[in-house]
Design a protein around this nucleic acid. Sequence first.
DNA 1: GATGAATGAGCTTTCATTCAT
DNA 2: GATGAATGAAAGCTCATTCAT
Lengths: 188, 188, 188, 188
Amino acid sequence: MEASIALFEQNGFSETSIQDIVDALGVTKGTFYYYFKSKEELLMDIHLGYIEGLLEKQKKIIDDPAKSIKEKVLDIVYMLIHNIEKQGRQARIFFREMKHLNEEHLRKIVEKRDLFRYELQSLIEKGIKSGEFREDLHPSIATLTVLGAANWSYQWFRPDGELSDFEVAKQMVAILLEGMEKKQSINN
Amino acid sequence: MEASIALFEQNGFSETSIQDIVDALGVTKGTFYYYFKSKEELLMDIHLGYIEGLLEKQKKIIDDPAKSIKEKVLDIVYMLIHNIEKQGRQARIFFREMKHLNEEHLRKIVEKRDLFRYELQSLIEKGIKSGEFREDLHPSIATLTVLGAANWSYQWFRPDGELSDFEVAKQMVAILLEGMEKKQSINN
Amino acid sequence: MEASIALFEQNGFSETSIQDIVDALGVTKGTFYYYFKSKEELLMDIHLGYIEGLLEKQKKIIDDPAKSIKEKVLDIVYMLIHNIEKQGRQARIFFREMKHLNEEHLRKIVEKRDLFRYELQSLIEKGIKSGEFREDLHPSIATLTVLGAANWSYQWFRPDGELSDFEVAKQMVAILLEGMEKKQSINN
Amino acid sequence: MEASIALFEQNGFSETSIQDIVDALGVTKGTFYYYFKSKEELLMDIHLGYIEGLLEKQKKIIDDPAKSIKEKVLDIVYMLIHNIEKQGRQARIFFREMKHLNEEHLRKIVEKRDLFRYELQSLIEKGIKSGEFREDLHPSIATLTVLGAANWSYQWFRPDGELSDFEVAKQMVAILLEGMEKKQSINN
DNA sequence: GATGAATGAGCTTTCATTCAT
DNA sequence: GATGAATGAAAGCTCATTCAT
């Protein structure tokens, strides 16, 4: 799986042959099929590992009773960006290669992906009710804006860049929560 | 090109054969190679058409002397989302299939894509200088946050949804400019 | 098709690879798939050619108004055996490799094979009614006995043997019609 | 062997993998190779079991001093058909999969199969000499006609059909001995 | 401008067999 | 007696590309 993740990320699922994978490991194609029923099944395993990891981490954040909703949103954004440092390759495979899953597998993955989204959305809805977020916020668009900003980072965030994952997350959340506009000073 | 865009978007570049394309048109493979040097060249044509269209529209917005910077950012976000209504398929191909370009073509496209980003970033930098945006804004992260939010919509925005492209863009820009937080009333 | 018939007959369908077929012709595998959708489709074409040829010949014999029923039975047996001289390889493929057809194709072929049997059976039934055949004959078993005797010959009849196909057919029909028993002389 | 007979008969020798066989038994492939040297050897064992059983039963019938030759022919036909009730699957494997034996094994099996035929042929020859059968009978063709009629039944005879194996054999032998023709009454 | 025949390299997958444990 | 991991050869099939016509 590790070897295939590196190859799928770099060259794409369709462009990576079983031969490429087993060559990277110094084994033969037969060995691959001893461990995986098909190339698609391997892809499914990668997808499952990724999304279930995310769901688990999201759940821990949401269930934390000590944090405010804003803090939880920050934590989720940070978690997504931090995850790219650790599992950026899986993330890129997840978004790019999902269409190569078969119908049944795709259904399962989309279900979990949607669950992640709904959990975030219901957090934002709570924030609106509790007064932490503006009442005129459209919960689903707010959710997708946050997710877009964070997920897009898998396209550009490199852990070796100028800013750390935490600083990127802080900046991004600052924009999302407080906005880019210069605040009007109360005294003016 | 039209036929291939529909097929590439639906099934992916690698999964679409030349045969599929010519079948959709009722011609034969020989004919394809009379008009295109290779499958990759066709993909390049699609990429070029998409990114050059975006750059042109972006330029028109930025060069408009009648608008504030904030308005220009709104316009660019709206333009990106609106584009999905018109050219969603090209957008999805652009982001998903870029890696199938050859080295030289890829370089050219990445150059133009980066140009688009730099133009937005320099708009935001101007906004910071002019006092329209907060001084503590990290221009590159702000740029990528805006682009992430807008570009991500190609994954979920459907023109037949509840909200129009303009309403989605307005909501999204409201979040990006004013933030999700409830503003403190001046009297409190 | 000709090349594949020779190979399927000699080595069996599963044991003959596409490579074997195209090697025999001095072309490449791609060429094979330009003309046939799959290996199974080629097998179907062989089956269809064989059974439809038989049905056509059977029809001509049955529709001949100048012949008695006994003569028609002889003609059908002779036709089957004669066919082995001309198309013995197809015959052997027909009986041996039918199970490699896919469900839909198998259904079509079995239908036609059964039609051939029913036509013979209805001929025998007419013979019983007309008094040419014994009344205590069980039509379906008689049919299968005749078909068994004739069809089995594809397992052993070789056109270069001692007897010609016509002589074999005559002998076989003599047994089937008159029996192997020594007839009791009228005077005894 | 039992498990493999069921699988070979249903799906064919080439189409049945060792994995299929050991799966049916809940053991592993290594175990198979502890008991059989190769897949082909297993096939040979099945062939040997079948043909030696037939030869033994044939010998008992032929050696019976209490029976006429005609009765012996009936008995052999009955034995063949009866065998299908008991060992139909082996029979079908025997006729269909023989070509998968290796050269040496094939030679041995063909020898025994031919022995069975010669024994029947020599019985018929005796019947001709003794006056039980017509003198103009061609012994080898008569033999193959009888064998064809009987063996073919493995293609269609189902023990749950309308007639029992004994009734089918009686009908078939009636045809083979007395013929299908209506006998001319002595008084006419 | 367009066709149709052909190629060749590559693909995923299967499977009988081996063998150290 | 039995297992499980591995192999290697081959299978059916796909497909971008070429090119004479």
